[in-house]
Amino acid sequence: MAILETRNLNKRFGGLQVTSDVNLALEPGELHCLIGPNGAGKSTLFRLILGEYAPSSGQVIYDGHDITALQSHDRIRRGISVKFQVPGIFKALSVRQNLEIALQHHLEGHSLRGAIKSQLEFLNLSADAAQLAGNLSHGQKQWLEIGMAVALKPKLLLLDEPTAGMSPDETRATGDLVRALNAEGMTVLAVEHDMAFVRQVASRVTVLHFGRIFAQGDIDSIVADERVAEIYLGQGHGPHHG
């Protein structure tokens, strides 16, 4: 049974059809990448899955339950988590506090402190625990947010351009991190432009174009697909890039 399934998901803003009949299914344990030119509807699809937008029609099924009518926080509590494109951290709070807020759901006292400590070590941020999160480097902010997102031990992790603005080294390290999380059993759905990253991590790739699923398959078949190359080349920006 798919852990996440969208059924004929449509979203219209006035006359603009942003997603059209998107039927996407993710198997448990999958590491799935969502690619497509700008404006293809990737971020909208994320927001529909997260409940930030209500669909014009269609359903979102998670873990066998229809969650289309649920509020965002209820979806999160059921095991979906997200890392945004722009680091969504609490800039005016310390790194430790950021993690504490993420972890205090299910932990307190000693075990909370222990979990914060191990999470800091996992993210390589122990030395910066007392720093304000806003003072971290861009890559560190991205990692902190990933750390906060996975602190909830989600079954499904959504990543919106996790390597945006990262150096090649940081991108590689992030790829390793994502793969390690996936190896622990987390299903991952990532929107990503960086094809090096997609090649490094993805087991399956879906291409969105004008709000529709344009192509789907493993990374090699997608890269080999001439129609995919065409829509990217139309943007002057091929999937072979990077």
């Binding site: 930030e52 969504g88 609490f90 709070l93 997102a149």
Partner: peptide, 17 residues
């Protein structure tokens, strides 16, 4: 903690459940 988190970034607070 949560109250301050909401002041700083309500979307992130929501997405932490």
């Amino acid at each position: 903690n949560v109250l301050v988190a909401i002041r700083e970034n309500p979307q992130r607070a929501t997405m932490l459940g």
